[in-house]
Nucleic acid binder design. Structure first.
Length: 413
DNA sequence: GTTGCCGGGTC
DNA sequence: GACCCGGCAAC
């Protein structure tokens, strides 16, 4: 390290030479400093905005590795991996798992994936019974042997109930099948998240939501489709993990006594703008600086998630959310990760998400009264930073702020 | 010793 | 404003 610095500035002789030294270091910026910075696009001018890969989950694999076994009696299906090795399921052909949803968790533990694909499954004969065609069950062909015999009935009933409720849900009726297709090349979350910034202006088309706070007082609100997650809350069940690929990102308003949940960031911003900021929808271009307080409730679990409990009390973020009215998400779902776009560093915001360019989505709470000045220096976050995650060797993967030795913008605390 | 990042400098 | 880094404090 010292050597590096020495080269940089230590020999600072006359300004000219120093400047020359710096110039010489320029190409380094990408990583010349480190031993490797292979993938630099070119010697051209430094791009102000660099293509960023999705860094949602630097540690994701680990996360998946430690995914807990499917809990409880609700669905006694063993995890897919185990299924392959289960001697009882030995005769199952290799092509078996349509259940091969990674993580096996399915949507809130309800394994409806097989249902829309019943035809395919039938063709490939992958039903665990394997003895014959899918059983002419009342509603859906539930894999019989996947569960202990005693629980099969319960599963069937639950699956039927779930599907019944699902089939009546406007959301799901309207949702493309891709939303629940497995891999199929479709990444449904993209469709949800990567919406053209302007597209949200066309009425309230895609934005459904409900107001947690006002629900109790304003019965006129059309009851939204009950998300499975919510169903699990209501029923007091621990919500199993959602499938990652279908991770449904919700956005919850953090304004006091609001708690509104919307499905899109743009919708949430519009909600905040209209309801809380009192702006008209067209005002989004107004000053380019707006404060939104909302958090993302994401079923996708990543290592950045630490839950609300782990927020340091000194953290402004911790004090930001006024209240989560009644929404007590199980830890893996409550994702305090909030968006922050920083003008200065073009800090990475979580990739893959498009937001109205001129607005600033903030996690910090400049407008709310906070204990300012208590700590001149921000307490060090315990999140992994770019340096730690990517290492010095991949400095070009760091967020800009990290490269500039500023507060990391990618792994917010 | 390492790491995050503030403060301040250069361009 | 973008970029960079010395140096400090937290770990």
């Amino acid at each position: 390290m010292g050597a590096r610095r020495g080269g940089a500035r230590g020999g600072a002789g006359p300004a000219g030479s120093l400047r020359a030294a710096r110039r010489g270091r320029r190409p380094i910026q990408g990583g010349g400093r480190g031993p490797a910075s292979p993938a630099r696009p070119g010697p051209g001018p430094r791009p102000s905005v660099r293509p960023r890969r999705c860094s949602l989950a630097p540690g994701r694999p680990a996360m998946e590795a430690e995914r807990p076994p499917a809990p409880g009696p609700g669905c006694g299906r063993p995890p897919p991996r185990a299924a392959g090795r289960d001697p009882a399921a030995a005769p199952v052909p290799v092509s078996a798992p349509p259940q091969g949803l990674p993580g096996g968790g399915g949507f809130a533990g309800l394994e409806f994936a097989p249902e829309p694909r019943a035809a395919d499954l039938g063709a490939s004969g992958t039903w665990a019974g394997a003895a014959g065609p899918p059983t002419p069950s009342a509603h859906i062909p539930v894999p019989a042997q996947r569960t202990p015999p005693g629980k099969a009935r319960l599963d069937e009933v639950m699956a039927a109930a779930a599907l019944t409720s699902l089939s009546t849900s406007p959301l799901l009726l309207g949702a493309p099948a891709a939303a629940f297709s497995t891999e199929a090349g479709a990444e449904p979350w993209k469709e949800v998240l990567v919406r053209p910034p302007g597209s949200c202006s066309s009425s309230s088309s895609g934005d459904w939501g409900w107001d947690l706070a006002s629900d109790q007082s304003s019965p006129s609100t059309p009851s939204p489709p009950l998300p499975l997650e919510a169903a699990h809350f209501l029923f007091g069940e621990p919500a199993p993990r959602k499938r990652k690929s279908s991770a449904q990102v919700l956005f919850q308003c953090l304004w006091k006594r609001c708690g509104k949940v919307l499905s899109t960031a743009s919708g949430m911003q519009r909600h905040i703008r209209l309801v809380h900021l009192g702006r008209q929808a067209e005002a989004e271009q107004s000053d380019g600086e707006e404060d939104f307080y909302y958090t993302e409730l994401d079923a996708g679990v990543d290592t950045l998630t630490r839950g609300l409990a782990s927020l340091s009390p000194a953290s402004p973020i911790a004090s930001a959310p006024p209240a989560f009215p009644s929404l007590e998400l199980p830890e893996p779902l409550a994702r305090p990760h909030v968006w922050h776009r920083d003008h200065a560093y073009q800090g990475c915001l979580a990739p893959v998400r498009l937001e109205p360019p001129p607005t600033t989505v903030r996690a910090c709470v400049p407008a709310l009264p906070t204990k300012l000045g208590a700590n001149p220096r921000k307490p060090r976050g315990d999140a992994k930073k770019c340096r730690k995650v990517y290492g010095m060797d991949h400095r070009d993967l760091w967020c800009t702020a990290c490269r500039w030795k500023k507060a990391c913008q990618r792994f917010l605390d």
